[in-house]
Design a protein around this nucleic acid. Sequence first.
DNA 1: CTGAGCACCTGAGGGC
DNA 2: TGCCCTCAGGTGCTCA
Length: 273
Amino acid sequence: MPELPEVETTLRGLVPLLKGRRLETVEVRIKQLRFPFPKNFAKRLTDATVTGFSRRAKYMLLALDSDETLLVHLGMSGRLVKADPASPLNKHDHVVITTDKGVQLRYHDPRRFGFMDLFATAARDDHKLLRDIGPEPLDADFSPAHLQTALRGKTAPIKNLLLDQKIVAGLGNIYVSEALFGAGVRPTRAGGKVTKAELERLVPAIQTVLQASIKAGGTSMRDYVQASGEMGHFQNEFAVYGREAGPCPTCETPVKRLVQGGRASFYCPTCQR
DNA sequence: CTGAGCACCTGAGGGC
DNA sequence: TGCCCTCAGGTGCTCA
């Protein structure tokens, strides 16, 4: 599910609920998610106070006063949502955290592709899952020149390469289709053959679609909701994603769907070359 | 090294 | 209703 905008909106929603709060109870209700929980996970979190919030690619990072950092990945179907502590637990509510103010957060993930980790904050830059990630697309150092270097000589389709978190952080299947539409680049183009002029359109196209989605609270299609429980509504603004045979918003040509690397891509055959 | 394919898991929806 | 198939927002592994 969640790509950069959904992770970012979740994180922003967590700040007012968790900032400066001590985690009073932590209950892990499943043996493992995608990976086993770290040793003594619940015990190490209990009584820690949350001091900082950041995001890297699709990872949420919560800094604790215990000098450890909680890493959360939502996988395909994960969500982290405030809940009434009195309401019954769902079978997919895998981790339940209650703060010293009585606020309860539930990590819910039917497909269990998500996971959590807990590690020394000082070792963050060496973390295996974080160290090879490419630039954040909303940061100043994300540029056409970076993409040009990263894509040089690549024969794989640009669609697949933009999903590679080492090339650019945080994009997933929805926003790659939307960004390539915004840039007028066909998803099948070999990465190394995308021109400088096209990359100069692609960078702002990526930034525009991500920022618009964050503003809309992300995309809620199946599982995703914000930390508050509210839905996002960027799904109402898709230009091409999920709109096979529908009219291109620019030229009204029917949108095409194809499968690349086992995943659907959507594009306008007229506007994207 | 690259790129392709599979694996992990549940649930929703369509066709019959 | 029920069964079987396909598909879904991610990513790490193996193999050629």
